[in-house]
C-alpha cells in the first residue's frame, strides 16, 4: 500500500481553468439549457401517468356504489331496528375483516324501511341503538339520534346518513359501497334536525 503520510504532499488536483474562448463557453451553456429542457419534457411525460396512478382511487361516487343484499326482509321485524352486516361490493382479497360493513335497519312498516349508516354523522364513529330509550348513541363525542335517524343532541350537525333501500322479491337491498361522510352523503337526505319529522326526505323506496 502506498499511503502518503501527509495528504498535503499529494494534494487533490486543483481545477485548472485555461482561458477558453467565449464562444465555446456560451455553447456549453446552451447545451446545458438543452439538457435541462430535455429533462423537463421527459419529466412531464412521465409525471402524467404517475399522477394518474396516484389519483386512481379518486372516482365519482357512482363508480363505487352498487346494490347489496341485506338478506330476507323477514329477518327484520316491523317496528324494530336491527343491526345488519354486509360485505362491501368494492373489495380486495387482502382486506381481511375490514371489508365488512355494518348498518342499522329500521323496518317502519310492512314494506317501508330506513337503513342507517353505522357511522356517526359527526366524525364517523359507530353508533349504537338503544331500543329501551329509542335512541342511537355515539361513543365518541356523545352524539345522539332519534329512532328515525334525526339528530337529537350532541356535536353532529345533521341526522344519521341513510342508504337508498329497495325490496327485491323478498330481500332487502341497499345502494352501498363507500364510507358515508359529509362529502358524499350529505346530499342524499336532508333531515332538518327537528325530531318531529318522522321520515325526513328519506330516500327509502319501499
Amino acid at each position: 500500500m502506498n499511503i502518503p503520510s501527509h495528504p498535503e504532499e499529494n494534494p487533490m488536483p486543483q481545477s485548472h481553468a485555461p482561458a477558453e474562448d467565449r464562444l465555446t463557453v456560451s455553447r456549453r451553456w446552451l447545451l446545458l439549457k438543452i439538457g435541462i429542457a430535455f429533462n423537463a419534457v421527459v419529466g412531464l411525460a412521465i409525471t402524467v401517468p404517475v399522477l394518474k396512478y396516484l389519483f386512481a382511487a379518486v372516482k365519482p361516487d357512482a363508480a363505487y356504489k352498487s346494490w347489496v343484499s341485506l338478506g330476507p326482509i323477514a329477518d327484520f321485524p316491523v317496528g324494530e331496528t336491527r343491526l345488519a352486516k354486509f360485505t362491501n361490493p368494492v373489495r380486495l382479497s387482502w382486506d381481511g375483516e375490514t371489508s365488512g360493513v355494518a348498518c342499522w335497519v329500521r323496518r317502519v312498516a310492512e314494506r317501508e324501511f330506513q337503513v342507517f349508516a353505522i357511522n356517526c354523522a359527526h366524525l364517523g364513529c359507530p353508533v349504537r341503538w338503544f331500543p329501551q330509550s329509542q335512541l342511537f348513541m355515539c361513543p365518541c363525542h356523545g352524539g345522539a339520534y332519534y329512532a328515525d335517524g334525526s339528530r337529537a343532541s350532541g356535536p353532529p350537525e345533521r341526522g344519521l346518513f341513510t342508504y337508498d333501500a329497495r325490496i327485491v322479491g323478498s330481500t332487502l337491498q341497499i345502494d352501498a359501497g363507500q364510507m358515508p361522510t359529509l362529502s358524499n352523503t350529505a346530499k342524499l337526505v336532508q333531515l332538518d334536525g327537528g325530531h318531529d319529522r318522522t321520515k325526513g326526505d328519506s330516500p327509502c323506496r319501499g
Partner: peptide
C-alpha cells in the same frame, strides 16, 4: 383511504 372504504389499500 385509497378507495371507498377503510381497508387494505
Amino acid at each position: 383511504l385509497g378507495g371507498p372504504i377503510i381497508a387494505g389499500a
